[in-house]
Amino acid sequence: MTTRNMIPGLAKGMWITLKTLFKRVPTVQYPLEKEIPVPRARGVIALDTEACTVCMLCSRECPDWCIYIEGHKEEQPPSKPGGRPRTRATLDRFDIDYALCMYCGICVEVCPFDALFWSPEFEYSEYGISEMLHDKDRLTDWLATVPDPPALES
């Protein structure tokens, strides 16, 4: 047993804790003050329904298949008089189940029309697991919180 030289190492440790005792505490008191998340933080996915073309790529690429999309084709009046009537896909349902989502960001990445964005918002916890399913409207609401991308290191 190394009771020899008992004092130096122990005293050093006690000096460090004593120093810390008088240091300013870096704690952020969460509900009162908030850290601003970094712009790239993967908090919640926002949906731009205008851009979505119901191509289902996100739903297909999602590793745990937590995106549910339904849509139908709608006849659109021709853009020029006398032209052919166009069909346009309309989004009926776009749900993301955040109880399943693992925040990998693949859906945002594969979206060819930039309809999905990451927002760093994180305060959407719920009491029931079924309420973690965000529907189209709720996902659209997140769009306002999407930050501009950060400046880049060149």
Partner: peptide, 13 residues
Amino acid sequence: KLSAHMQHRIGPY
């Protein structure tokens, strides 16, 4: 309180 501040925390608040 002391343990908290020695660990650089706030402790009871």
